[in-house]
């Protein structure tokens, strides 16, 4: 293979992983921006999305239906957890973070308890491999990238153009003032939890289309999601998408040029470096809602 072919292929591989990470990062960044809660369990939401997809496909359902089920199931889980747990930690976001730690442990091991800790995979939903001038392009990766672009574009449109999006951005900017303007902030918080969870469910479904997953996949993925959210600036959705692209490309290259055992280290090292130089991320973020502390 020519060098340029490898190059293009690695960009593609990187972008497909970046898609999944971006989907988590959007949820992470929105939830943090609105509530100040660092939700580490978000990676487990993704893992559950993957498991639901795996269960549905194993039960004989088609992949598209499985994706919808994953989105619905994880969205519902987000709703229940917000109403049942996170709602009570809004005054002290640190407690919300600790609750999410407990959730990580519980969700992981509930999955292990019912469906054993082994790797789970589904047959690739799309098996076609296109050859364009010597570059082999797996259609499943293109599908993942395309779905992510569509979903992210839709979310952007919702957040920038609709009045709900404007209210949401106002609440991220200043929760108390937004509430005074008559925006039902509490309801928006629930909504963001559901939206973020649904995106994580989609991410999980797309991830299992690319790679086998285990009940412990969520841990690394959420760290990458946070790395992206922090590099882009917490609370800043544009930043999260841009940082997701950067990280995906960096990871793709490192895997393609023989440093694959260090792949996981890049996101963390990059994040630490960016935070030391620019504590609010490359594109600027909030430091969480202003608390009356």
């Amino acid at each position: 293979m020519r060098a340029v072919d490898i190059f293009i292929q690695q960009i593609l591989n990187g972008l497909s992983i970046a898609s999944v990470i971006t989907l988590i990062a959007i949820g992470v960044t929105l939830i943090f921006g609105l509530t100040g809660i660092i939700n580490f369990a978000h990676g487990e939401f993704l893992m559950i999305g993957g498991i639901v997809t795996w269960l549905a496909v194993s039960a004989g359902l088609g992949f598209p239906l499985a994706v919808v089920l994953a989105i619905l199931a994880v969205g519902l889980m987000g709703y229940i957890l917000e109403r049942g747990l996170f709602r009570f930690t809004l005054e002290r976001p640190t407690n919300g973070f600790i609750v999410s730690l407990g959730l990580i442990v519980v969700l992981q091991h509930v999955v292990v308890l019912f469906w054993n800790p082994n790797q789970k995979s589904i047959p690739r939903p799309l098996t076609t491999v296109w050859e364009v001038g010597g570059v082999r392009i797996a259609s499943v990766r293109v599908m993942v990238i395309a779905i992510t672009i569509a979903v992210v574009a839709l979310s952007f449109r919702m957040i920038t153009a609709s009045r709900y999006g404007r209210a949401l951005r106002a609440s991220v900017e200043d929760r108390d003032t937004a509430a005074l303007m008559g925006i039902p902030v509490r309801r928006y918080i629930t909504g963001v939890f559901v939206l973020g969870s649904a995106l994580a469910g989609l991410g999980g479904a797309l991830l299992i289309a690319l790679f086998p997953i285990t009940p412990f996949t969520g841990g690394t993925m959420v760290m990458k999601g946070f790395a992206v959210a922090l590099i882009g600036g917490l609370g800043n959705i544009y930043g999260a998408v841009a940082a997701g692209l950067i990280l995906g490309i960096v990871e793709g290259f490192s895997a393609g040029y023989g440093f694959s055992q260090w792949t996981d280290a890049y996101s963390f090292a990059l994040m630490i470096l960016v935070l030391i130089v620019r504590p609010h991320g490359l594109f600027g973020g909030t430091s969480g809602p202003r608390m009356a502390s």
């Binding site: 973070f97 946070f226 994040m271 935070l275």
Partner: peptide
């Protein structure tokens, strides 16, 4: 020093990342 400079909410994530990094460095 760098983690606390970043401060607040980020500290927890920084220590988490350093922990992961150490495990990767030890493995490699």
């Amino acid at each position: 020093i760098p983690s606390l400079r970043v401060g607040g909410h980020h500290f927890v994530i920084m220590t988490f990342a350093f922990g992961q990094l150490l495990a990767i460095v030890l493995t490699n």
